[in-house]
Amino acid sequence: MPRRDVIEVRDLWYKYPEAKEWVLKGINLTIKEGDLIAIMGENGAGKTTLVKHFNGILKPDKGYVKVCGLDTREHTVAELAKYVGLVFQNPDHQIFASTVLEETMFALKNFGWDPERAKRRAKEVLKEMGLLDYINTSPFSLSGGEKKRLTIASVLVYDPEILVLDEPTVGQDYGQKRRLAEIIERINSLGKTVIVVTHDIEFVAEYIEHVIVMSRGTIIAEGEATKVLCDDNIMKRARLLPPQLGMVVKNLEDYIDFKGNFLRLPVFVENLRRWLENDENVKGI
């Protein structure tokens, strides 16, 4: 069965009020149901501005954005938010409630859920996020990683079809990043579309296969991480450093023909093992 388009961006132009320069210059983009995509680029490339169009916080100056068939210009943020869950970069910009449970239930209250049902659903999601022990504590007392997971829970709670995470790895340590990656993979495996906005190249290399690269308000590349992230030209234009494994592969290119998503460590090691097992190869060096 062909997957339907959940986000359709056509010739999107946008500039902030009172600003002179366009922040987005003719963006064209199609995202399909169930995709797991990273949007990458330097600071100020327009990544966050682009994703703010997905739930209608910003409306296009030219062109249009359709989310699950709905034109964002004709629908309110509250209507679109049911389809697109946008998790902001800094949890401190949204946390306000006195308990973790209330914080999680905020969106459900806004959408008019019955309180008992909302509570059940919130507990379910908090359990998934490993925060069930904290339901009655103040969200302000959580650690950075827990706060991040709470903000994800507070969006996942109403089961949006599309989840957008803005810079989820900023300020997170390795363990927290791994946990984040597990959550992202789990949500994606349930058939949800997940879009991760980030400039954390190693995180993308390890966990996300499809990449969109932006620079100065335009999309300069889109495709498989193994191709896009290892292309020096694109990386230079986007002012990004290629992933470490990508650089290793580049230097071994003459000897080894890497297959699969070699940016993932297990795949990389498998490629290397297969090559080493062949005595002829080793003699060749």
Partner: peptide, 13 residues
């Protein structure tokens, strides 16, 4: 503005 955007994204009208 960011905070307003964040809460609107969670359905606050």
């Amino acid at each position: 503005q960011i905070i307003i955007d964040a809460q609107r994204s969670r359905g606050l009208e």
